[in-house]
Design a protein around this nucleic acid. Structure first.
Lengths: 236, 236
DNA sequence: CGAGGGTTTGAAGTGCATCAAATAGTGTGG
DNA sequence: CCACACTATTTGATGCACTTCAAACCCTCG
């Protein structure tokens, strides 16, 4: 897990990596650790070396909305560059994680100085946008069991044709909020998915004879073609 | 309404504008005109000089999901650059419009050659992302009447303190789909909004003594502070 | 082994969707 | 300028999906 291996940073300059490495700091955090709060002044962005991080926002009346839940290999907080150096959401560790903090200033400078890097950064932003669009679409036209099916598909290796085992990477309650539903709804929707597709559920482990069972159930209510790998939902 | 006036293009080069102008083509279209379809090969991006354009996608089982509805002053289709030169959605005129088509190749070249331009393009993408995040949030934690209230607020001049008149810029059915609800639900939710906030509704015209009536009703269920101007919902 | 969080289950309510039909509104041709 | 045709909008009735509140269950970990 190295910065140099991330697609976003393919075109970054040697000196950029050197600056980052010099000023980087890696810290281990347990579940529940708040990394920063929405609107906090931002000097760093972050790389997840291992574990999972939840990005979220809170409303005046107390409800929380999950922006995203990111796996190892992802960076976050970098968009503060475009938000007057303030984080546009809060960040919390949801599975024990190693987090590298890196200077935003270096990132900003590299964007300004290195055209190729700026372009790959834009590609990454565009990719993320596609995902958000799909997310919004799913909230509109998929029901709870379908959204779960789609989520599971994105956790799996979609090229595999035989039997598949999927392990939920974090608490079911969190998966629920990630999919925009209540924990109770998630629980019930998962059993419905089970009875309608014939998958097997044992705790956080889900097994099936073939991904097709899920594809048929979920993908008809989606505007994308089946192999639809989600870059943020998947382990890096 | 000129390319040079758009914030995204502040830092574009003189030669870029010249190339665009040379290759641009302005066409008037009526309601219902399909400009391009999802996955079409893309050679152009577009600027809306007047009117409104809906971006949408369709699923296998026939439902449609509205990605966005854009007013004059907005460009669209430009993200095809990052999608192998294919449009990531379909585009349709929903209110009589003048549409300028512009070469994607020039845009791509300018991004590659002009660093400042790339940066302002990234800022625009980040701004859009914030909006999508908010959209998703609203679908999760706001109910139908609140979403309508929020939508109306974003149509209005939020700095105004006295009485306000808002005109719906396109069909109610479209507003409904833009907000992720059925036309019937929209109709009923609007009357509910009326009875709960004291606004007045006459056809597509909505009046109130003060925006506060809506702010109190909608903004408690949002993670953003009140003046929350939506750049895509608003007339340029 | 007990405490506490995560998960499931039950019962009841709410909001939105759906289907059906009435009504209002708009544009057209006569 | 009117009547018709067509579309947009509203209204009514009903059903389903998801939420909410409450309680039981389960699992893990000190």
């Amino acid at each position: 897990m190295n910065l140099r291996d991330l697609p976003t940073f393919t075109n970054a300059s040697q000196s950029f990596f050197e600056t980052l490495e010099k000023e980087s700091q890696t810290v281990r955090h347990g579940k529940g650790k708040i990394l920063f709060l929405h609107e906090d002044e931002a000097a760093s962005f972050f790389l997840i070396k291992s574990g999972w991080v939840k990005l979220f926002r809170e409303t005046l009346d107390g409800s929380q909305s999950v922006v995203d839940i990111l796996p190892a290999g992802h960076i976050f907080g970098e968009t503060a560059i475009f938000e007057n150096d303030r984080y546009p959401y809060s960040g919390e560790v949801v599975e024990p994680a190693e987090i590298v903090s890196l200077p935003l200033s270096a990132l900003k400078a590299e964007i300004r100085e290195n055209n190729d890097f700026a372009f790959s950064m834009m590609s990454a932003m565009a990719r993320y946008r596609r995902q958000q669009d799909r997310e919004l679409e799913h909230r509109t036209i998929q029901n709870a069991p379908q959204r779960i099916g789609c989520f599971l598909l994105r956790l799996a290796d979609q090229s595999k044709t035989g039997p598949v085992t999927i392990h939920l990477p974090y608490d079911k309650t969190l998966v629920a909020s990630r999919l925009g539903m209540q924990p109770e709804t998630f629980s019930r929707a998962l059993s419905k998915l089970k009875s309608q597709t014939g998958i097997t559920i044992k705790g956080a482990t889900i097994e099936m004879d073939s991904l097709n069972q899920l594809v048929e159930f979920s993908c008809a209510a989606c505007s994308s073609e089946f192999p639809c790998k989600d870059l943020t939902a998947k382990k890096a």
